[in-house]
Design a protein around this nucleic acid. Structure first.
Length: 472
DNA sequence: TTTTGAGTTGTTCGA
DNA sequence: GTCGAACAACTCAAA
């Protein structure tokens, strides 16, 4: 009762519930928010917790995006008569204290499927009245299972079962008005946060909706073909928004279904499939949390990876001597994002040309990606390395020259991210080491000086990798 | 229980 | 230049 006496909060008038915001930074189609409002209490306490266990991981771009998104959410909340409360510390302690301060009854949050989130939530649910709501995915991972109740581990049957489930019919609109915050409730300041690069991402629900509208008005029509082109803006670029729930998976899927009905068939179908891939990897992580530590496929856990820190650094810094690989890596450091085709190219290069452990690449991506999501990132890396569920066949090794020529035919993408190659003729843009001396002189790129020679011979590296995979 | 068909995203080689 | 087959064998999912 001591804390009651000390407290300056009026807690006698309005009973309230806590909306614990984690990766659902939106007011529209937010099941956790709806559930909080539907509870017995009249008051609403939107809370974001700065959890040291999560924020200690180096991810400057994602954090900058998060802070910006929280500011945007705070503004949306204020406009509706509420506001965002920010607190710092281990979530269990923070929530306990907050309940003591305000007399809040229930805590509601959107369910998250990472092993850390599940451990955390289980511990909190054991001590406090925590209710979890769906929303991170369209369908809960436990819903998309085989007839015998076990999870799918192959994409195609998973997607068939996913599509056979009843479609969500409507989304909940953002509430017009929200109950006011109790007076005198302390809130920590949001960190400023410096992104590692000139930030091109506009965070928040409004920006997400705009991005979706732009995608639906243009690129979706040719998505089936153009999504693979590095030199075009053919993708949705919604991944950072989906990562932080600034748009819900359900909103995206509904948009895809509508587009299909409006006759944007092939493009929209392909995009829906990509959304289902996202759900697939969330489900894999949910059912097989160990994938974050080791290969899903037990027979591929003992590949003899090379130990070559110099090669790793060359890959990280984008100076492997393969222009398309280097341009993609510079795109990552330059904008905290990489084209999906690029992710496959550089992942294949790290694993199958350099024969370095896929987990090194997984970690590097998590550090820099603004959309870095443990499930999707891990799924992608295991797929490329050929060690995961439904993995690429061992012999599927990307040839960086062919990939560059196919998906960046004029070299526009390479020139955008590797300005040192701007004057290299298109005929040599993906194979600058083949330039004769006079061409090198003419375009001002001397191999080994302005641009590195390839750090590995692809054909030889390919044979090395085939041997390593056979010999495991 | 057994059987059958299928499995995101590629490359290379030889006709 | 284009085209089809080979690259292994295995596991999954469903009948």
């Amino acid at each position: 009762m001591q804390c009651l006496a000390k407290s300056s909060i009026r807690r006698d008038t309005t009973p309230m519930n806590i909306w614990w915001i984690r990766r659902d930074l939106r007011l529209q189609d937010n099941q956790a928010l709806q559930l909080t409002l539907q509870g017995s209490a009249d008051g609403l306490l939107p809370v974001f917790i700065l959890d040291p266990a999560l924020l200690s991981a180096p991810a400057p771009n994602r954090q900058a995006f998060l802070w910006q998104g929280l500011r945007a959410l705070d503004e949306q909340l204020r406009r509706r008569g509420s506001g965002l409360i920010v607190r710092t510390g281990p979530p269990l302690e923070v929530l306990s204290r907050l309940r003591a301060e305000t007399g809040a009854a229930q805590i509601v949050a959107e369910e998250d499927y990472t092993p850390y989130a599940r451990r955390r939530d289980a511990a909190i649910a054991a001590a406090l009245p925590l209710t979890l709501a769906g929303g991170l995915t369209v369908h809960h991972p436990a819903q998309v299972c085989k007839a015998d109740g076990t999870p799918y581990t192959v994409f195609t049957p998973f997607s068939k079962a996913w599509k056979a489930l009843p479609r969500p019919v409507s989304i909940a609109l953002a509430p017009d008005r929200l109950p006011p915050l109790p007076t005198g409730l302390a809130s920590d300041a949001l960190p400023e946060g410096q992104p590692a690069m000139r930030f091109v991402w506009q965070a928040g629900e409004v920006a997400a909706a705009q991005r979706l509208a732009d995608f639906l008005a243009g690129p979706i029509a040719d998505y089936a073909d153009d999504r693979n082109r590095l030199d075009l803006d053919g993708t949705s670029t919604l991944s950072p928004y989906l990562r932080f729930g600034m748009i819900s998976a359900r909103q995206a899927a509904l948009a895809a279904w509508q587009a299909i009905e409006q006759g944007l068939g092939r493009g929209a179908e392909t995009w829906l499939n990509e959304l289902i891939w996202r759900e697939f990897y969330q489900a894999i992580l949910y059912h097989f949390p160990d994938v974050l530590q080791q290969a899903f496929n037990p027979s591929l856990r003992n590949i003899a990876w090379r130990d070559a820190p110099e090669d790793l650094r060359a890959w990280q810094e984008g100076r492997t001597g393969y222009p398309v690989v280097d341009a993609c890596m510079r795109q990552l450091s330059g904008m905290g994002w990489m084209h999906n085709r690029g992710r496959m190219i550089v992942a294949s290069f790290l694993v199958k040309d350099l024969l370095l452990d896929w987990r090194l690449g997984e970690r590097w991506f998590m550090r820099w990606l603004v959309d870095g999501d443990p499930a999707a990132n891990n799924g992608g890396w295991q797929w490329t390395a050929g060690v995961g569920t439904d993995a690429a066949p061992y012999f599927r090794i990307f040839n960086p020259l062919l990939q560059g020529q196919k998906f960046d035919p004029q070299g526009d993408f390479v020139r955008r991210w590797l300005p040192e190659l701007r004057r290299v003729p298109t005929a040599y843009i993906h194979t600058p080491w083949l330039m004769p001396e006079d061409v090198q002189a003419a375009c001002g790129v001397r191999m080994g000086r302005e641009y590195p020679l390839p750090i590995v011979n692809h054909a030889a590296a390919r044979d090395r990798t085939l041997a390593a995979y056979r010999g495991r």
